[in-house]
């Protein structure tokens, strides 16, 4: 019993570390993207991997800790609020689609990426005191779906090489 608990903790810690690192590495890579500020969402690869190998509970835990640590280390309060809103909506959508079982990793990832963007924009409305931000949704949303497909395919490749019971 105790061993399983320890194993779970170690798995969670490992994936959380990977998720934080993915997010950090992304800010260092000078990848030419069509829109500055647009992100590839590499951290979602780790979150997807946890979701498919250790289940929704672990995925939620890993993602929330990732957002908290990122907020403390890099992004500050507003960045934290934005990513928390995005992360929560995205997690919810991804878990629902995953549970539903009809979708592959790519669909879950694309919908999750869009939900992330939509969540951020929705929280921006009260924060900025203007609903004009909503006008950003089509462009940023389309980009999110695109990057979501890419990270989804990448995550699927990774998941195939991981055992499915969360034991790494």
């Amino acid at each position: 019993m105790r061993d399983r608990k320890v194993q779970k903790m170690v798995t969670a810690a490992l994936f959380t570390g990977a998720a934080i690192l993915f997010g950090y590495v992304e800010t260092l890579l000078p990848i030419p993207l069509p829109v500055p500020g647009m992100k590839l969402g590499l951290a979602n690869i780790a979150v997807l991997a946890v979701l498919y190998t250790a289940g929704p509970g672990m995925a939620a835990a890993v993602d929330l800790v990732r957002i908290l640590v990122n907020g403390l280390m890099f992004t500050g309060l507003y960045g934290f609020l934005f990513s928390l809103a995005g992360g929560a909506v995205s997690l919810l959508i991804m878990i629902l689609l995953y549970k539903c079982g009809r979708f592959g990793v790519t669909g879950v990832s694309a919908a999750g990426a869009l939900a992330h963007q939509a969540g951020q924009i929705l929280v921006a409305v009260p924060l900025l005191g203007s609903e004009a931000v909503l006008a950003l949704l089509p462009v940023l949303g389309a980009l999110a779906v695109g990057t979501g497909i890419v990270t989804g395919l990448t995550a699927a490749g990774l998941i195939r090489h991981l055992p499915t019971d969360g034991k790494v």
Binding site: F103, G104, G107
Partner: peptide, 24 residues
């Protein structure tokens, strides 16, 4: 552990992505 097949992309994904693109 046992190998569970994790599909990278399913038909439903393509439909989902098409719907998302349409809404956007």
């Amino acid at each position: 552990s046992r190998k569970k097949s994790v599909k990278a992309i399913k038909k439903a994904d393509i439909i989902l992505i098409a719907i998302l693109a349409g809404v956007l």
